[in-house]
Computed example of a mutant assay.
Amino acid sequence: MKQHVYLKEKKSMQEEFENQLMKSQIEVQEMTSNELAKELHDNVGQLLSCTKMFIGITQRSLAQIPDTLNLAEETLGKAINELRALTKSMDKEWLEQFDLITNLENEINRINAAKTIRINLSHCGKLGLDTQKQIILFRITQEAIQNAIKHADSENISINITTILNTIDLKIYDDGKGFDLESANTGLGIRNMKQRIGLLGGSICWDTSVYGSKINIQLPINDDKYEN
């Protein structure tokens, strides 16, 4: 009887884990799609327009030293490289090889480029965590960053990732105005964050005040909780 209940609970948790994984993958893809469209319009489109202009100039001045041709080729090369990098993020292969640190660095660089808030990241390198769990952990971290930006009016955020005794220790600090954790428990995605980290076999806690907030996440690296 106990074995039957255990297997039933394990199956239920496995199904919930897979649902949350799929949801996280869709969310990551949607956010990447939005950034891709913006970058294609604002960045790559501008590079291609410049290339067309340089080629046009060269065509009208072929009797002179064609320095603009070299510049056009260089600009086109940049456009092609950026396009490849952006479109690669939409591939299924990208999700299968998902790396938390690399994607978190890209996310932080994108946010810092706006110069409205400063995020600093320190980490211990590659994490010994399977890609599925890294995707879900990335979404949890993304949500924490967005909460600090949108709701806490933070100017600075610090993220520190270390591994201690086969456990990932992820801390997120911000210098915002804080919030009431009890009243915010039904909002700010806090319940969702708790549910997701619970499915990963980890723990998450908040420490908040008028001087800022701290989120502490701990996650076991080797956990066969959802292994077949």
Rank of each mutant, 00 (worst) to 15 (best):
K92L: 03
S122E: 12
F98P: 04
K133C: 11
Q134I: 07
I117C: 12
I101C: 08
A85L: 02
E82C: 01
N106D: 11
K78P: 09
L121A: 15
I136S: 12
R110G: 04
R110D: 02
A79D: 06
T116A: 06
G128E: 15
N81A: 12
T102Q: 10
A113S: 07
N112Y: 09
E93N: 14
L83M: 03
Q132K: 05
N112V: 10
T87W: 05
D91V: 00
M90Y: 01
Q132T: 01
N103T: 09
T116S: 10
L95T: 06
A113P: 00
D99P: 13
E107D: 06
E107R: 12
K78G: 10
C124V: 14
F138Q: 11
I119A: 02
T116E: 11
E82R: 07
L100Q: 05
N103K: 11
L95P: 04
L129A: 08
L95D: 05
E107Y: 08
I80Y: 15
I136K: 09
L129R: 04
L127F: 09
T116V: 06
I135A: 03
L86H: 05
N120I: 01
L104E: 06
I111W: 01
L83Q: 01
K78A: 13
R110Q: 05
L121M: 15
L127G: 12
R118T: 10
A114C: 04
S89K: 02
D130G: 01
M90N: 06
K133N: 13
N103V: 05
A85N: 04
G77D: 15
F138M: 13
L129Q: 04
R110A: 08
Q132F: 00
A79L: 08
S89H: 00
Q134E: 06
K115C: 07
Q132S: 02
I136R: 09
K78F: 12
I80N: 13
I101T: 07
I111C: 03
T131W: 14
N103F: 02
K88D: 08
N109E: 13
L95C: 07
E93R: 15
Q132G: 00
A114R: 13
T131M: 15
L137E: 04
R118Y: 07
N109S: 13
T102A: 11
K88L: 09
C124A: 12
R118Q: 11
Q97W: 09
K126P: 14
T116H: 12
I108N: 09
I108G: 08
N120P: 01
E82A: 03
N109W: 04
L127K: 10
I80S: 14
N103E: 14
G128Q: 15
L83Y: 02
I119K: 02
N81G: 05
L104P: 10
N109F: 08
R84E: 04
K92F: 01
K126S: 15
W94E: 13
L121P: 10
H123R: 15
S122N: 13
T87I: 10
W94P: 04
D91I: 00
G77R: 15
A114W: 03
I108W: 07
T102C: 05
L95K: 05
R118C: 07
D91A: 06
L104C: 12
L137P: 13
F98W: 13
L100S: 08
G125W: 02
K78M: 14
K133H: 12
I119S: 02
N106M: 08
L83A: 00
R84T: 01
Q132L: 00
N81V: 10
E93W: 11
L83H: 00
R118F: 07
